[in-house]
């Protein structure tokens, strides 16, 4: 779960209001995308961003939205299968599907986070929210790995699937601007350095490296859609970021196992340090991607 809750409020407000008026239909949302500057209640900062960015940067935004929708489609499918296994009491199947299913969410986390409560609903860890409000993936993680019983987890599974499906509906119309992409890419990496690289995210399953990789892939996708714009503005920076993504990928490579990753608990201290430093090496230049906005 994202630790920062201050994600562009404008995006949340706008996204919700659009959704309400447009009944969540993708077509309608797209048609309504342009007139946003005309909305009187829109915060000025976002307006400036949209105005300066609209011409050059609409294509990357559209491409990114398409990718987010694909990922969320996959998230729904994977969550369907995972929750079905939980409800059927098939612990082994559920355990094997847990980390890969979550990865789809981790890739699009900034989007989920911008949509209000989806992030805590789906991804809160124990203690992030009051106990009686705790639900989502990590609650099932605890049942699978810690208490080792999913007998009473049916309602949690149902709720998770419902939340994920609702997220799928909402991403159609979520307002995405370039500022959000730029910030989101860095926040994905910050997520990794604050919770994944410390092994705090998956405290029972120890599948943190799946999340690590997924967050990085999410950031990489944002970079890919923005790359043409960045090439035009600062080619050296673009090249540096590309190199650092490749280096981080190489740093992760030794820990790939089958279709996934080794457990966090199998990493040695200096291996964790190296991953953490490779991540910082990428995040620093990535944080300068905002140079494509305005000026």
């Amino acid at each position: 779960m994202m630790k920062k809750w201050g994600y562009p409020l404008s995006a949340v407000v706008l996204g919700s209001s659009l959704l309400l008026s447009a009944c969540g239909s993708a077509e309608t949302a797209k048609e309504e995308k342009k007139p946003e500057a005309a909305q009187p209640d829109k915060p000025a900062a976002t307006e400036t961003t949209a105005n300066t960015a609209a011409v050059d940067l609409q294509a990357p935004i559209d491409a990114y939205r398409k990718w987010v929708i694909e990922q969320t489609d996959q998230l729904v499918k994977a969550t369907e299968s995972f929750t079905a296994a939980v409800k059927a009491g098939d612990m082994e199947k559920a355990k094997s599907e847990y980390a890969p299913a979550r990865a789809y969410f981790e890739r699009i986390e900034p989007i989920a986070e911008s949509l209000g409560d989806f992030d805590p609903w789906i991804d809160a860890r124990e203690g992030d929210v009051p106990d009686n409000e705790w639900r989502g993936y990590h609650k099932l993680e605890k049942a699978l790995w810690e208490t080792k019983s999913v007998a009473d987890q049916g309602p949690v599974a149902d709720q998770l699937l419902q939340d994920v499906k609702q997220l799928r509906v909402k991403v159609e119309s979520v307002e995405i601007d370039v500022k959000m992409l730029v910030t989101g890419a860095v926040e994905l990496l910050n997520e990794v350095s604050t919770s994944k690289v410390t092994g705090e995210e998956e405290r029972y399953s120890h599948t943190d490296l799946y999340d690590f990789a997924a967050n990085v892939e999410g950031a990489h996708e944002i970079f890919k859609v923005l790359k043409p714009a960045l090439d035009a503005k600062d080619e050296a920076l673009s090249k540096e970021i590309e190199t650092r993504f490749a280096e981080l990928d190489a740093a992760l490579a030794p820990y790939r196992k089958g279709n996934g990753y080794v457990l966090y608990t199998e990493l040695k201290e200096d291996q964790v340090k190296k991953l953490s430093q490779s991540l910082d090496a990428l995040a620093e230049p990535l944080s300068k991607m905002g140079t494509i906005i305005g000026g």
Partner: peptide
């Protein structure tokens, strides 16, 4: 400083 609000 670049002065850009979009950059660290």
């Amino acid at each position: 400083e670049s002065g850009s609000p979009h950059l660290p």
